[in-house]
Computed example of a mutant assay.
Amino acid sequence: MVVTKWRAVAIGFAITAILSLVAGFVPQLAILGGGVAGIIGGWAAGYYANSGRVSGAWNGFLAGSIGALVAVTILVLAGLTISLVELSLGGVFATIGVAFAILLFVLIGAIPATIGGLIGGLSPRTESEDAERPTA
C-alpha cells in the first residue's frame, strides 16, 4: 500500500523548487539542473517518508512534479513580466509555449524524482530504540 507523507513531500518539494530555480537563473546549470534537482528532491522525499521503495517513489514523484510546476510557474511569470515591461510580442508567444514548457519541466522533474524517491526509500532511516519506547 502506498503511503503519502506530506512532510516528506514538502521537504522534497522545497529542495526541488529551490534547485530548479537556481538552475533556471544560472545558464551554466540549465542543462542538468532539472534532472539533478529532481533526483535530489525525490531522494529526500523518499528518505524522509521512511516507508519503503514504493512509497518512497510515490512521495518522490509528488515532490518532483509539484516542485517542477512551481518552478515553471515562477519562471514563466518572470518571462511574461519582462516581455510586458519591454512591450514586445514575446509575451504572446510565451503563453503559447507555456503548455510545452510545463509538460517538459514536469517530465524532467518528475521522472528523476521518482527514481530518486525509489533510491531514498531503499535506505530507511534508523531511529534509536530510546526514541520509540516511552519512559516509565
Rank of each mutant, 00 (worst) to 15 (best):
V9E: 01
A10K: 05
A10W: 04
A10N: 06
G12W: 01
F13L: 15
I15L: 13
I15R: 03
I15N: 04
T16E: 13
A17T: 14
A17E: 03
I18G: 07
I18L: 15
I18V: 15
S20D: 08
S20V: 01
A23I: 03
A23D: 02
F25M: 12
V26F: 01
V26I: 15
Q28N: 08
Q28I: 06
A30S: 14
I31F: 15
I31T: 11
L32T: 04
L32I: 12
G33H: 12
G34L: 14
G34I: 04
G34Y: 11
V36A: 15
V36W: 06
V36H: 05
G38W: 05
G38Y: 11
G41N: 09
G42E: 10
A44S: 11
A44L: 03
A44R: 03
A45N: 03
A45W: 01
G46Y: 07
G46S: 12
G46A: 13
Y48K: 06
S51L: 07
S51G: 08
V54D: 13
S55K: 07
G56D: 12
A57R: 03
A57V: 04
W58P: 00
G60I: 02
L62S: 02
L62E: 01
L62Q: 04
A63T: 01
G64P: 01
S65L: 14
I66Y: 10
G67S: 12
L69A: 15
V70E: 04
A71R: 06
A71Q: 08
V72C: 08
V72R: 05
T73H: 02
T73R: 02
L75E: 10
V76T: 08
V76S: 11
L77V: 07
A78W: 07
G79R: 07
L80D: 04
L80G: 10
T81P: 00
I82V: 08
S83V: 05
S83W: 07
L84V: 04
V85W: 13
E86C: 02
E86W: 06
E86P: 00
E86N: 12
S88L: 09
L89H: 06
L89C: 00
G90W: 12
G90N: 14
G90H: 14
G91Q: 06
V92N: 09
V92F: 14
V92I: 11
F93G: 13
F93P: 00
A94P: 00
A94W: 03
A94C: 01
I96F: 13
I96D: 10
I96W: 13
V98Q: 10
V98S: 14
A99V: 10
F100P: 00
I102G: 05
I102S: 12
L103D: 02
L103H: 03
L104W: 05
L104I: 03
F105H: 07
F105W: 08
G109F: 01
A110L: 09
P112M: 15
A113G: 04
A113T: 01
G116E: 11
G117N: 10
G117V: 03
L118D: 08
I119M: 12
I119E: 05
G120C: 11
G121R: 13
L122H: 09
P124N: 15
P124W: 08
R125N: 07
R125E: 11
